[in-house]
Simulated scan of single mutants.
Amino acid sequence: MWADGLVEVTAEAELRELLGSPTPRDAGKVRRSLHEHDRQWLAASPFCVISTAAADGTCDASPKGDPAGFTLVLDDTTIVVPERPGNRRTDGFRNVLSNPHVGLLYVIPGRGDTLRVNGRARIVRDAPFFDRLVVNGHRPPVALLVEIEEVFYHCSKSFLRSALWKPESWEPQAAPSRARIAKSLERPDEALEDLEQYYGPRYGDRLYG
């Protein structure tokens, strides 16, 4: 590990000296249950990132996306996130089995602020509400049920700094294509042409199959 000249922060007091303390308003904005504004946000959000950590500290952050409103609100303190076909690594799910604490970050395209939800999760394989999780004929094999402990909004500064929603700042070709990444790191025995076809325009046809 590179460490030449590294000056590490090792105490909260030192961290506060460097970054300061939150205002009373920011420190007190955490709530224990959903407000109607939160319900409207979840109904409009098509994307979230779920962060988990195993009992040994192993971490994962997994993106989840579906049509807007894919997160089902059961009540003011309980939400459900359906699982869709993916790479089957189950990193986050395996973390939840040993440590139920999760953090979710909900995004609405074009909005700089985000909704943050922290709580305790359970992996559910069936329940009466699963019929409400069907999309394009796909009924999820499992879902993540989250009992909310904290919910609050985060300001837009990071999105403004990054210009994330400004198309004129986008450079999708700045990094190798998904096909080239797969060829180099994951599927070296497959032809690049085949991978380009696999990850091409028809890739979206297999989202739920």
Rank of each mutant, 00 (worst) to 15 (best):
K183V: 00
A143T: 09
F159T: 07
R132N: 11
G137R: 05
R122C: 01
G110D: 08
Q173T: 10
L104E: 03
A163R: 06
S98V: 09
L192N: 03
F129H: 15
L104W: 08
L145K: 12
V117G: 07
V117H: 10
R111H: 13
E196N: 02
E193M: 03
R116G: 14
S184E: 10
F130I: 14
R125Y: 11
S98Q: 08
R139T: 10
L195Y: 05
G137D: 01
R161H: 05
A175Y: 08
W170E: 07
I108Y: 13
G200V: 00
Y198K: 11
K157G: 01
P100H: 04
D189K: 05
R120V: 12
R132H: 12
R122V: 04
S156H: 08
Q197K: 14
D131E: 15
I108M: 13
I108S: 11
A191F: 07
L195W: 06
L195A: 08
P141G: 14
N118V: 14
H154R: 04
W170I: 07
L144S: 03
R125C: 13
K157P: 00
K157T: 03
H138V: 00
P188A: 02
L185A: 09
Y153M: 10
F159A: 06
R116T: 14
V146S: 02
E149Y: 12
R178F: 11
Y198P: 00
L105T: 13
V117Y: 07
A163K: 03
P109C: 10
I181G: 01
R187T: 08
E171A: 00
D131K: 15
W165C: 01
V142M: 09
A179L: 04
V135D: 00
V107P: 06
E193D: 12
G110V: 06
V117P: 10
D189S: 11
V151H: 07
S184H: 11
L105A: 12
Q197R: 15
K166W: 03
K183H: 09
G119Y: 07
V117R: 09
P201E: 04
F129C: 14
A179E: 06
L195K: 06
R139P: 07
P201Q: 03
S156K: 05
A143Q: 06
